[in-house]
Amino acid sequence: MNNLLCRSIILLFLSFVFLLPGRAQQTLAYQNLMLQTGDLIFVGAKTDQLSGAINRVTQREENASFDHVGILEVSDETVFVLHASPKKGTVREPLDSLVSDSAEKGKQLAVYRLSEETRHCIPEAIATAKSLLGKPYNWSYVLNDTSLYCSDFVERAFRAASLFHLEPMTFKNPLTGKTDLYWAEFYQKLGMEVPEGKPGCNPNGLAASPNLKKLGDLVLAP
Rank of each mutant, 00 (worst) to 15 (best):
F158H: 08
T179S: 10
K88W: 12
L28W: 05
A208C: 07
L11Y: 05
C121F: 04
K189W: 07
M34Y: 05
D217K: 03
L82S: 00
V111P: 00
D217A: 08
L4N: 11
L98N: 02
T118L: 03
Q25C: 08
P123N: 04
T179A: 14
F80A: 01
V91W: 00
K189G: 10
S162V: 02
I126D: 01
A208H: 08
V111N: 02
M192P: 00
L5G: 00
L166K: 14
T37L: 05
P210W: 03
A53D: 02
G22M: 07
L40F: 08
E193D: 14
P168Y: 07
P199S: 12
D48N: 14
L166A: 11
L163C: 15
L11F: 04
P136T: 12
E77T: 05
S209N: 04
V111F: 02
G177K: 08
L166P: 04
P123H: 04
L181V: 15
I41R: 00
L35C: 09
H68P: 03
R119P: 01
W183Y: 07
M1T: 14
T176N: 13
L5H: 03
V17M: 10
L133V: 12
F164M: 05
T37R: 03
T58C: 09
L175D: 14
V79L: 05
Q108V: 08
S51K: 06
V142H: 06
A127Q: 08
A184L: 12
E104G: 12
R119F: 01
G22N: 11
A184K: 15
V142A: 13
V74I: 10
T128C: 13
S65P: 03
C121L: 14
A221C: 11
M169P: 01
H120R: 10
A207V: 03
G191T: 09
L4I: 13
F186A: 12
P199Q: 15
A64M: 04
A207S: 11
P168E: 12
V154S: 04
Y137K: 09
D39Q: 05
E62P: 00
R119T: 10
D39I: 00
H165E: 15
V194S: 01
A184V: 02
C150P: 02
Q31K: 14
K198F: 05
D39K: 01
T170P: 08
V111I: 14
T37Q: 04
F16A: 14
K135H: 15
S102Y: 01
A129C: 07
K87R: 11
R23M: 10
H165V: 15
A129D: 04
I71T: 00
D145C: 13
K130W: 04
S162L: 10
T58A: 11
P168D: 14
P123E: 05
Q59N: 09
G134H: 11
L206Y: 04
D96Y: 05
D217P: 02
G44Q: 05
V43G: 00
G52Q: 06
L12A: 15
G216P: 01
A29K: 06
I122Y: 06
S147M: 10
C150M: 11
D217E: 13
L33K: 07
E104Q: 14
L95Y: 00
P94F: 02
D101Y: 06
E104N: 10
S100N: 07
N202M: 04
T47Q: 13
I122A: 10
P86F: 03
R7N: 06
G197S: 14
T58Y: 08
E185G: 10
R7C: 06
S51T: 12
S51N: 13
S15V: 07
Y187Q: 07
L163N: 07
I9V: 15
A125R: 03
